[in-house]
C-alpha cells in the first residue's frame, strides 16, 4: 500500500458517498444515469467475487463490502425509492453496446482462462467505460449539478491516482499488470474533457454547463 493507492481508494469511496448523500438528501436522482450505476454494480459484483475465496486483509474486505453495498443502494434509490425523479428520457445509452463487446474481449484477452479471472478481467474492462452513460447524459442535457460534478471529479481522480500507484509499484516492486494499466489509462482519458470543464468552471463557482 502506497500513498497514491490509499488516496485513490479514499477518492473512490468519497465519490460513492457523495452520490449516495446527494440522492438521499435531495430525495432526487435527477441528472444521474441509472445505467452507469447498474454498470458499476456489475463491475463490483464481478470483481469482488474473490471475497468468497481469498482473504487479503481487513482493509481489503471492508472496502470491497462497502463498495458493493453502496453501489446496490444507489441502484435501489434510482430504480425504486426515488424512481419518480429518475430522468430516464435522458438516460438513453444502450448498455448492451458496452457489456457484450467487453464480455467478448475479456474472454479473448486475460491473464488466465479461469472463471474468476475472466470475471475480474471483465470488471476491469467494464469499469473503464462504465461512466459513459453518465457522461452521455451530461452532454445530452448540456449541464450537471455542481454536486454531480464533484462526484464525477472524485471518481475520475481515483483512477488517475491508481495510475500513479502503478508507476510507483513498477519502480518500487517491479510489479505491473498490463490489463489494469491499459484499462485504467482508457478510463482516465475518458474523464480528461470533464476534468478540464471542472477546473475551469466548477472550481470557479460556476455550474457545469456545456456550450450549446
Amino acid at each position: 500500500m502506497n500513498l497514491f493507492r490509499l488516496a485513490g481508494d479514499v477518492s473512490h469511496l468519497l465519490a460513492i458517498i457523495i452520490l449516495l448523500l446527494k440522492i438521499w438528501r435531495t430525495r432526487s436522482c435527477a441528472g444521474i444515469s441509472g445505467k452507469s450505476q447498474i454498470l458499476f454494480a456489475l463491475v463490483f459484483t464481478t470483481r469482488y467475487l474473490d471475497l468468497l475465496t481469498t482473504f487479503i486483509s481487513f482493509y481489503n474486505t471492508t472496502m470491497k463490502v462497502i463498495y458493493i453495498g453502496c453501489s446496490y443502494a444507489t441502484v435501489w434509490m434510482i430504480y425504486a425509492k426515488f424512481k419518480a425523479t429518475y430522468d430516464s428520457n435522458h438516460d438513453t445509452f444502450r448498455m448492451e453496446f458496452l457489456v457484450i463487446p467487453i464480455a467478448a474481449l475479456s474472454l479473448l484477452v486475460n491473464h488466465d482462462f479461469a472463471p474468476l479471472e475472466i470475471l475480474w478481467t471483465f470488471s476491469i474492462y467494464l469499469e473503464s467505460v462504465a461512466i459513459l452513460p453518465q457522461l452521455f447524459m451530461v452532454s445530452k442535457t448540456g449541464e450537471a449539478e455542481t454536486i454531480t460534478s464533484h462526484y464525477l471529479f472524485a471518481l475520475g481522480l481515483y483512477r488517475a491516482l491508481y495510475l500513479m500507484n502503478w508507476i510507483w509499484r513498477f519502480f518500487a516492486e517491479g510489479f505491473f499488470d498490463l490489463i489494469a494499466i491499459v484499462a485504467g489509462l482508457v478510463q482516465t482519458i475518458l474523464y480528461c474533457d470533464f476534468f478540464y470543464l471542472y477546473i475551469t468552471k466548477v472550481l470557479k463557482g460556476k455550474k457545469l454547463s456545456l456550450p450549446a
Binding site: 481489503n60 491473464h111 488466465d112
Partner: peptide, 10 residues
Amino acid sequence: DAIHTKHDEL
C-alpha cells in the same frame, strides 16, 4: 504470481 497479487487492489 501476478494473478494473485493484483487482487490486493480494489
